[in-house]
């Protein structure tokens, strides 16, 4: 192998070049594109700070955070009190951005599908198997629904997306809670699993008659049709940045900033919406690192929010940003 000496030499040369302040983070997959974008944009403003973020999954992110091998973590499910108790350096959870989970479907001639709560639960429990089932026809008056089979697509990998989606279904249907339950990976009684949003998107795109749940940004970028979902107040709400923001605004965040709009009742609120959190330690030993991290997170909470809409995320409501900034202040 002739490449080794030259590579080693290159590595050594690079090693003597200027060292920037490096911050590394790992965790949730859902916000990874946004965090990486923040990292690049922030590096343009402050070249001395390099932030590395890699998606390893929320579960692994929390684990790495507790093991202290990262400078910050990230999780779609925040951290449980038991997990926080295990952290030797404490933990501060900061909501950093938010997103909706949408029901993407493939019915070539139908653009404005509406799904009632009963229809949504029925489909994912395998009780409703045809598109022209009375439960679906009922909430789509005048739409010519085909008599074809419904193919269900779900996320096969453990994901915050599944967590949020099943959490909502379990909240609106005791039967779903009983049979499937809410978690990052669950077993649906029907359908096939795609790995990642891209896997579910491929399943939906490939076969007419398929319905699956993906992140809003994914459906938006891929031009998938998304169903309007009935919320607690009986309105059918299509997923948009506004309807997502309405759901977020309806949540009163507790002191630890961990809360989910599980079944928002606010008018115009899209029912399946969630925050995602950055996990910071309560104490940092290295003052330079602490300052760099605080500056980076502040950037994300302020200027960074303007990038959210462009990438298919929902910017945080003002009130949440204020609380998040206050929480950031407690980090020392």
């Amino acid at each position: 192998m002739r490449i080794i000496p030259s590579v080693v030499a290159a590595a050594l040369t690079a090693a003597v070049s200027v060292q920037a302040q490096q911050l590394s983070g790992a965790g949730a997959t859902f916000p990874a594109p946004l965090y990486q974008r923040w990292s690049v944009e922030y590096n343009k403003q402050v070249p001395a700070i390099q932030v590395n973020y890699q998606s390893v999954g929320s579960g692994a992110g929390v684990k790495n955070f507790l093991q202290g091998v990262v400078d910050f973590g990230a999780s779609d499910a925040a951290m449980t009190d038991a997990e926080i108790a295990k952290s030797p350096r404490g933990a501060v959870m900061i909501p950093a951005t938010a997103g909706s989970v949408v029901l993407a479907y493939n019915l070539p001639d139908i653009k404005n599908l509406r799904l009632s709560r009963a229809a949504l639960v029925g489909i994912f429990l395998g009780k409703i198997t045809k598109w022209n089932d009375p439960a679906i026809v009922e909430c789509n008056p005048g739409t010519p629904l085909p008599p074809t089979a419904i193919n269900v697509a779900f996320r096969s990998d453990g994901s915050g997306t599944t967590f949020v989606f099943t959490q909502h279904l379990a909240a609106i249907s005791p039967e779903f809670d009983e049979e499937v339950g809410a978690d990052k990976s669950v077993v649906f009684p029907v359908g096939i699993g795609g790995k990642g949003n891209e896997g579910v998107t491929a399943l939906v795109k490939q076969t007419p008659g398929t319905i699956g749940y993906v992140e809003f940004g994914y459906a938006e970028q891929n031009g998938l049709s998304c169903a309007a979902i009935e919320n607690k107040s009986g309105q059918f709400v299509a997923p948009t940045a506004e309807s997502g923001a309405a759901a977020l605004a309806s949540v009163e965040l507790p002191e630890n900033l961990r809360a989910w709009p599980v079944d928002p009742a606010a008018p115009g609120a899209y029912p399946i919406t969630t925050f995602t959190w950055l996990l910071l330690y309560k104490k940092y030993d290295d003052a330079a690192k602490l300052k760099a991290l605080k500056d980076f997170v502040t950037y994300g909470l302020t200027e960074g929010q303007s990038l959210a809409t462009q990438l298919g995320y929902i910017p945080l409501p003002e009130a949440v940003v204020a609380k998040a900034n206050a929480a950031l202040g407690t980090v020392e």
Partner: peptide
């Protein structure tokens, strides 16, 4: 892990082609 930046030393998070392919192929952006 991964890095958005040039490699500085052997003891820091480092980018690789395979992880980049994985990251980018799972993004919704063309």
């Amino acid at each position: 892990l991964f890095s958005q930046f040039w490699m500085g030393s052997l003891m820091e998070p480092t980018a690789s082609l395979s992880v980049l392919i994985y990251n980018f192929s799972t993004m919704p952006f063309e």
